[in-house]
Amino acid sequence: MITTRHLLITGTAALAAFGVVGCSSDGGSADRSGSSAARDVVAYHADYPAYDSLDAVIEESDLVVKGTVVNSRVERMLPETSADGDPATNPQAGLSPEELAEARAEAEADPVVVTVSTVKVSQVLAGDVSVGDTVEVSQLGGTYKGVTYKERSTTALAGRGTEYVLMLADNGARNPYDLLNPEQALYTVGSGGAVKAVSGGGFNNAGRIGQLADRTHRISAR
């Protein structure tokens, strides 16, 4: 059975849309095989910010790195359930304890599932990390408790030695990074250093990794 959930991503990336008050891991790496072990499929439909050019993505990125995935895990993200704050920014502001408990139960029954990949950095194009560091990158989707969650524009990071260029948004010290856009901010590095978009929604003028590094340095220096 396939069901569809609509998620409006109004910030720079997926994690920015949710206040994390709890998460749990499925254990081990994310299951991207699409095997029959999954009982159901939930199809996310997320609206991401779109950019007019590769330069615009680079300019908005907090971190641009080349690296490979060394580990991954699946987590569920629960929207914050708090009666505090401004009703303009928190729809639950002013709810009674009983109403908050009901909202929390609904969130736990229908969580947002993400895959968090640990990426080892082999080249820094922009941002405050070093070669050899690891960064965590969150993407919508994954297999959690027998249910596969998929977002149509998201290509899950592979852990088979594939080299990626990632253009990332910083969500704070306790949260993973996110791609600014799942298609426009994700590229592979192939033979001879050629940088290619993972899907047709990305930009095809990235060139080779050395050219992209020079381009990124110029943009970051503006």
Rank of each mutant, 00 (worst) to 15 (best):
I2L: 15
I2H: 13
T3I: 15
T4H: 10
G11H: 15
A14N: 10
A14M: 13
L15H: 13
G19C: 10
G27W: 05
S35G: 07
S36L: 08
S36V: 08
S36R: 08
A37D: 13
D40F: 09
D40I: 08
V41T: 09
A43I: 01
A46F: 06
A46R: 06
Y48I: 02
L54F: 07
D55L: 07
V57M: 02
I58T: 03
E59R: 12
L63P: 02
L63I: 13
V64C: 03
K66T: 10
N71D: 14
V74Q: 03
M77R: 04
L78T: 06
E80S: 14
A83R: 07
A88W: 06
Q92L: 15
Q92C: 08
L95Q: 07
S96Y: 09
S96L: 12
E98I: 05
L100D: 00
A101P: 03
E102R: 12
R104W: 13
P111Y: 02
P111F: 01
V113G: 00
V114K: 00
V116Q: 02
V121I: 14
A126W: 01
G127H: 09
D128S: 14
D128I: 12
D128Q: 13
E136F: 08
L140P: 00
T148C: 10
Y149G: 03
A156I: 02
R160H: 10
E163V: 13
Y164F: 14
V165G: 07
M167F: 12
L168C: 01
A169Q: 08
A173R: 05
A173W: 05
P176T: 03
Y177K: 01
Y177G: 01
L180D: 00
P182S: 09
A185P: 05
T188P: 08
T188W: 11
V189R: 10
G190Q: 05
S191M: 13
G193S: 08
V195L: 11
G200S: 14
G201W: 03
A206E: 04
A206V: 10
G207R: 03
I209S: 02
R215V: 13
R215H: 15
